[in-house]
Each structure stands twice: as C-alpha cells, then as structure tokens.
Design a protein around this nucleic acid. Structure first.
Lengths: 368, 368
DNA sequence: TTGTAGGCGTTATCAC
DNA sequence: GTGATAACGCCTACAA
C-alpha cells in the first residue's frame, strides 16, 4: 500500500539536515534569501537532498498547489497520417520548455470517447487541453472542453466559441500555388485534382479544400486566368488521383499544369502522366500540398506547400499556456505554409517577363 | 489559489446527501454491500453526485493510494518515421482498456534528456514506463529506468538487465522474405540492398539488419542457395537505394531478385529498374521490409514484411501492466511480422514444385 | 531565522 | 450501518 516505494520525502530530507520541513521546503524552492535562511542551513539541506536523491512528489504538490505541470493533447487520430507525429513533436517541445509533460489521448472522432477522455484529463487536473485534428477540418467542440483552458489545433469550431484555434494558412498556400504556376508562365490548361474548379465543389468538411481553392482562384483571376477544370474526389489517395488525372488528360484545353490537393494525389497523377508518355517538369507542371516525405522521393521531385506540423503543435501549446482565459470568439492563429520548390514545375523561359508574354499555346517552345 | 475552480468535491456530495464523507466514498467506490450501507442511502448519494456532476479528483486519490492510472511512454523520436504513430496508437489502446492514460516524452536519443524525462515521469508517479525506439535497435537503458516498472519497446538492452523487451520478429521475417523468393523459383541472382551479403556486413547498431540478414541466409542456404551479392548502406533512403541498385544491376550473375531492407530502398530500386528498362514483377522480383504506406502506392505494388507497430505498442503496455515486477534477464517478446503479398514478385510457374525444379537460368521461360 | 500547524481531496481504519 | 479521524507529501500563513 506504500506509494512510490523507496522514494524519499521532504520530511526525511529535513530530518537528515536537522531542520524543520518548512525550512527544507523553502531552501529547495529557492526561497532562501527571501526567507532569510542561513547559507549554512541551505548547504545542509541541499546536501541531504543530494545524498538521498530526493525528488519532490509532483502529485502531492499538485494537490496542494493545483498546478500539475501537465497538459492534455487529445486528437482524433495519432496514427494514420505519416507526418502527424510532428504535431505532437512541436507540442512536446513547447511543453518541455515550460516544464510541462503531455498527456495524450486518441478519440477516433467518437464524441463519446471525446467526452470521456476530456474528463479523464480534467480529472487529472491538466492545466489545459489541446484538441487536435490530424487534417484541418471543422469540429464540433466536445462536451466539457470549455470547462477549462483549451485550444483547437488544426481544427476550426463549427459554431463560434470562446476558444482559440491554430491552423495552417491554407488560403495563402492556395495563393502561393497559383503564383508558382503564373510565375512559370502557365495561363491556361491548369487543372485541379481533388476538388472541382468552382467554389463549393469540394469534399465535405475539409477546410483545406475550401481555402486552398479560394486562394488559387483569387490569384488566378487576379491575373485574368481561369481554372480549366478539376476533379472532385472524396478519397485523396494515389489510386483516385491516377484515375482522375487520366480523365483530365483527355480534356481540352490539354492540361499543362496540375494543382494536386495533396501529395498522394500527386503520386497518382505522376503515374498517369508517365503512363501517357508525358514528362513532369517538362511537358506538364505539378504543384502539390502537404509535402509528405514521398514528395521528395518522386522523380522529378515534387514542388509542394508544406503543412507546418511542428510549428502548429508548438503554437497551440504556447497559446494554451500564455493565456489560459477565455478568448474573443473566432480567434484564429494562422501558421504560414512554406513553399518547397523542387523539380516538378516546367522551367521559366528566361525572357518571359509577364505571365502572358511569350505564350505560344499548350505545346510551347520548351518541348519543340 | 483554488485548484480546479468549479469542481465539486466528495465532501460537497456528502453534505448534499446528508451523509458523512466516508459513506459517500464507499458508495461511489461500489462498496455498498461490503460496508452494509442501505440502498436508500446509496440512492441519495448517487443522486447528489449526479446532480452536482461530481468527478473524483484523481490527483488526490493518487496521493492517497499511490496509483495514478497513468503510464509513461518515452521514445527517442515520435516524429520522423511515418508509421511510428502506430506504436503509440497500440499503447494508447491497451492503456485505455486498463483505464490508464499515457504521458509521453521524446528524448531525441539524448541521455541527459532521457534521465530528465524518466525522472519527470516518476515524479508524477507513473505506474510504469515504456521506453521505445522508433526503429529496432540496441539501447543503453537510461539511468533511473530500473527504479520502477518499465519495458523496452522496439529496443533491446545493450547489457543484460531485468527488464522485458518487445520487438518485431525480424529473424522470422528474414526467413519469410527468402521463402517468398524460393517459392517463386528464384535460386540465383538474388541481391540484398541495404546490407552486404555476408553476416556482419550491416550498418552499426541496427538490429533489423542483423536479424533479417540472418533469417534470409538461413533459409536460402537451407535450400542450397547463396546470396549473389549486396550493398551495405548506412542511409536507407530512396536515393541511396537507387544508386546501389544501379550498381548491382551491372554485376554478374544478372540480378533476378532484390531483397530491399526497407521500403524506401525499394522506391529507389524501382526507379533504377525502370531507368534500365526492366519491369518489376516480370523481369525482376522485389521483396521488401516495413510495409510503409508507399509500398502500396508503388506500381506494381510492393510485397513487404510489415512491422506490426500497433501490436508492438499494445504488447508493451500489456507486459508492463501485467507483471510490474522484475523479470528474468533477457526476457524478449517477439511479435510476428506479417507478410503483405502484392505484385512485385515474378509469378510462380504453375508446374514448379520444388524451388530448384524447372529452373532454366536467369532468363527463364517467364520472359521467353 | 526557524518551527508549528492546517489543509489540498481522497481512502481507510476503527470506534460507535 | 455510519461517522470521526488519520494519513498521503507538500506548501505556506502565522507564531515564536
């Protein structure tokens, strides 16, 4: 029944140092000066602590002070997306900088489980909860989350609520993708893979789809360019991308550029391009999102807008730990998505200054 | 200074129910019968608890009982390998089945950090610590890990110590890889990518390399077959695999099968094969290890021996929670690595019964 | 400058 | 059957 067998308590340290528990406590809390405790006594206490290998029992301290130095990290799934670990990694790093540890839980999107785990964490007196999604989406804030400090990570609340959210800046990423193509001279034959060409033609509930498309359309139309078409896909996996790309390749105007809404779709698109005898980065440009590891494994290497998982995780914890109070409804922190420029974009013609200048149709001078 | 603002305590419940705290405690602990408390009183207590939304404070309970219902999960890195999340996932599931939560930490392989985090976890009175590595390797058990219950996950201790280990059965996986090739008629021109053909020609410290190679050689030599060669690589990434495979393709006997020591090497090998005009699954077989997602994205899909991350994570927690005591030195639980048969193996000739029967040289009848 | 004592919310021992 | 009362280990107001 003895808890933590073998651990030495503060009382024991005090006894060995020949002082009261209070004195020992003050010394070890670094409040010697403040409490005007003699240096001699301090030395004795510290020595006793060292000799016995004393470590404060955080549980009892928590009970007394109400601060557990622990925060909860609750996500829908920690497993399925390869780079999701970086979310946790960032959170972990930020937490450690504040001398906190992370309690994690996985909800699998089950509201019942969500509630249960939120409670299990609050029962353990966590100082706050990060509620994370592995891909950016709208979530209904689970019961009990609002009972204490919390922050949404990679997720937006379906209904306005007084809790901050941290998400990638998908809108700006969409703009960046469009700019990459414009910069390299593309003005027609641009197709999107994963969503349709019109607003609203997106898989349900996927924030990234909506915002990326909006960013793309905004920049494109700003340059007087229109999307030639697209393929709305619910399943953003290579196989679906392959089939979709194959279909788009039969359309007119002939595709000169694909904006794939994630790297897996790009994998399929590459295969379709290869099967139809086209060369990525020469005949056709591909720009993608997410920057999973596979992006740099592909040949030619894929240009992609990276999801800043690590930074997202960090930021969430920092927001949580900095202002534990309620926050104006709709507070959203957007983290930039860095552009990783690689080899999947057709080279810019040196003399081409304006997006439209020098354009000579779908089969330009680059391919003779 | 009030901890957990707004939480109702047991005392409050007892007051509302008009009973003593003791009685309330017994009722809510389900010990009514044992304590011979009237059903009426029980009802009153339960109602009060329900009305107030009472939840026991786990921290104070922990202080009293010494059981925190929390275990620590410490790993070298949670982020870099895509499927590592499944380790955590398995651990999480097993933990939840025992009503435990997981406290996680990342050491980045830094011994100082390891020690710190082990202590931080023990300070929080975790009931045990899973010390995990993201790829199977030998680790020196960090200071303090042996001070309480613990288990090694995906790791083996460099020196014998009284702590159980849970690892994938790499030896058997090596055997399985070899059997796959023998079964399909390969008896020469078999090359390994990632390690050399001889025992000991492996990257330092990589358990998987040693054991997989041993398993392969055992089965092969049992069938009177020799490895034709290999390429010892320290960096098991696609680029290295590409270069290595290109090199091996110039060797004699001409390669008919590659055993790639992970899927990333297979990605590079596929590219080399393609660049030299060979077809995987027709001219050349490829069998691989790990079964990362990319294995099924490749065309043709890659046959690979999967690392059972989920099962590993589960098992570790189960071992930890089932026997919290010291364990005979050298206790190792080996989890089978399932073979995922896909399309990268040359089809077996229907009439071929024995591995050696019907073999007609490196360019057999399959390719005319 | 140091020590005494009370309390954080539970659980558990023992009287009544 | 029920209710004081004493821990668990730590922090801190207050007394000395």
């Amino acid at each position: 029944m003895l808890p933590a067998v073998g651990r030495v308590t503060l009382a024991e340290v005090a006894r060995r140092a020949g002082v009261s528990q209070t004195t020992a406590s003050f010394v070890l809390a670094g409040r010697r000066e403040e409490m005007r405790i003699s240096a001699q006594v301090e030395a004795r206490v510290r020595q006793a602590a060292r000799e016995t290998g004393y470590r404060p029992n955080v549980v009892s301290r928590s009970l007394r002070t109400g601060t557990t130095q622990t925060i909860g990290f609750l996500s829908d799934t920690v497993a399925t997306t390869p780079f999701a670990g970086h979310l946790i990694w960032g959170a972990l790093d930020a937490a450690r900088e504040h001398e906190h540890l992370l309690l994690i839980g996985e909800t699998e999107g089950d509201p019942e489980l969500e509630k249960e785990l939120v409670e299990a964490m609050r029962d353990r007196q966590v100082e706050g909860i990060v509620f994370a999604s592995m891909y950016t989406r709208w979530v209904s804030v689970p019961k009990g989350l609002l009972d204490g400090p919390s922050v949404l990570l990679n997720a937006l609340p379906t209904r306005p609520c007084p809790i901050a959210a941290v998400v990638p800046d998908e809108l700006e990423a969409g703009r960046a993708a469009a700019r990459v193509l414009l910069r390299s001279g593309h003005t027609s034959g641009i197709y999107v893979v994963g969503v349709g060409a019109r607003p609203g033609q997106v898989p349900k509930g996927v924030v990234a789809a909506v915002e990326r498309l909006a960013g793309i359309r905004e920049v494109l139309s700003g340059a007087g360019v229109e999307l030639a078409g697209g393929a709305l896909l619910r399943d953003w996996q290579p196989q679906a991308g392959y089939v979709a790309a194959l279909g788009l390749l039969k359309r007119k105007p002939e595709p000169r550029a694909f904006i794939c809404f994630n790297d897996r779709l790009s994998v399929g698109t590459y295969q379709a391009l290869q099967d139809t005898g086209r060369k990525v980065g020469k005949d056709v440009s591909v720009v993608s999102f997410d920057d999973e590891p596979v992006a740099s494994w592909l040949r030619p290497q894929l240009t992609s807008l990276a999801i800043p998982h690590y930074e997202l995780g960090r930021k969430a914890v920092e927001v949580l730990l900095s202002k534990p109070g309620p926050v104006p409804e709709g507070t959203v922190h957007r983290i930039p998505m860095p552009l990783r420029e690689r080899e999947s974009i057709c080279p810019v013609e040196a003399t081409r200054k304006h997006p439209l200048a020098g354009w000579r149709g779908p089969r330009g001078p680059l391919r003779g």
